[in-house]
């Protein structure tokens, strides 16, 4: 346990120091992007990894928060009011989203969330008087909490890091909480959980709210990072990218979504500067992971390392980890 604590502290220190080591604004911005999408992916992971509910509509929730923030700011209110309104609005939208989507599970759940995501995208795209359609809404300023300016890439990175660490901590607490354990129970054995007296729907609903809150937080970060929001940010490919991060990194793990976010953001930004066919690469990585390493990179690599270790020490390798979907 102490080793683990030490590792976590070293990782956090490394993240704080990262911009000073990186130096260039471009790469600091990439790091900010990784962290803000990691928060988004963590939100999806709550449902996909721990709840067994695959959502293809989360970019919609992200977008609701983002558009509320942009509109409240445009109406002349301060950042605190805007952020509060956007988080509350995000939660209300999530509650409505969840109330509809949680009538189902499995493939049907994917379809409902996809449809809801498309509805929100459709509103963003066509409801011009509120969203300004294709042209999007610009946000000219970033907040300055406690007098610290977030205008520079470095300042924004450190603020994003704080929020990311809070989200990670919240996620860790959630997973270890009775609610988190109950959610995993509803994923693996919904009927037994029901028979044991758990309110399966309510457990999933609460998890959905937590997931929506994380999505809303990342939506707020997104608007401040880009200082702009347009319908593209909440279209189906954005939801798919979020899901890709979770699946690629490892659903049902804390670190997986972060690794997945880093993978996707780096391929989209850094690799795309060198390889024209990065979109193809992203799809190919995705397909390869689903087929060959269905548990995702983090558990997959851990398994490989352990298996190699065991073979090296001539012990019997453990059986393959189970595939996508319910995990023990």
């Amino acid at each position: 346990m102490t080793l683990r604590c030490a590792a976590i502290i070293i990782a956090i220190l490394a993240l704080i120091a990262a911009p000073f080591a990186i130096g260039q604004d471009y790469y600091i911005n990439i790091a900010s992007q990784i962290l803000l999408y990691a928060v988004f992916a963590l939100g999806i992971d709550v449902l996909v990894g721990y709840g067994g509910l695959v959502s293809l509509g989360h970019a919609g929730l992200f977008g609701v928060a983002a558009y509320i923030l942009a509109n409240v700011l445009a109406a002349g209110y301060g950042h605190a009011v805007a952020i509060a309104a956007s988080l509350i609005g995000g939660l209300i939208a999530t509650a409505a989203f969840a109330a509809v989507a949680l009538r189902s599970t499995g493939i049907s759940f994917i379809m409902i969330t996809l449809a809801l995501g498309e509805i929100i995208w459709g509103l963003a795209y066509r409801w011009i008087s509120v969203t300004n359609g294709d042209n999007g809404i610009s946000v000219t300023t970033r907040p300055a909490p406690f007098g610290l300016s977030l205008a520079s890439p470095r300042g924004f990175y450190e603020a994003t890091l704080v929020i990311f660490l809070l989200a990670m901590a919240a996620m860790a607490i959630f997973v270890r909480s009775p609610l988190g354990a109950a959610l995993a129970g509803t994923r693996d054995q919904p009927r037994r959980m029901n028979a044991l007296g758990y309110h399966v729907w309510m457990i999933r609903f609460l998890a959905f709210l937590f997931s929506g809150l994380l999505s809303a937080v990342s939506g707020v970060l997104f608007v401040y990072y880009n200082q702009f929001i347009s319908p593209q940010a909440l279209a189906l490919p954005a939801s798919a990218a979020g899901l890709l991060m979770v699946i690629a990194g490892g659903a049902g793990t804390l670190l997986g979504p972060v690794v997945g976010s880093a993978l996707v953001v780096i391929v989209q930004n850094v690799v795309s500067a060198y390889i024209e066919r990065w979109n193809f690469m992203l799809g190919a990585i995705f397909v390869a992971i689903v087929i060959f390493m269905p548990e995702g990179l983090v558990p997959g690599v851990t398994r490989l390392v352990r298996a190699t270790w065991r073979t090296a020490s001539r012990r019997r390798p453990r059986a393959m980890a189970p595939s996508l979907g319910p995990k023990p």
Binding site: L243, N279, F280, L282, G283, V287, V290, L324
Partner: peptide
């Protein structure tokens, strides 16, 4: 592709999603 994942509908859906990204880029 899909036959390899028989009986895992979620994985199959995800593969079709991945392939759609690849096809879009190949067409481009």
């Amino acid at each position: 592709l899909l036959r390899r994942l028989a009986g895992q509908p979620l994985a199959q859906v995800l593969v079709t999603l991945g392939v759609s990204l690849m096809v879009a880029d190949l067409c481009l």
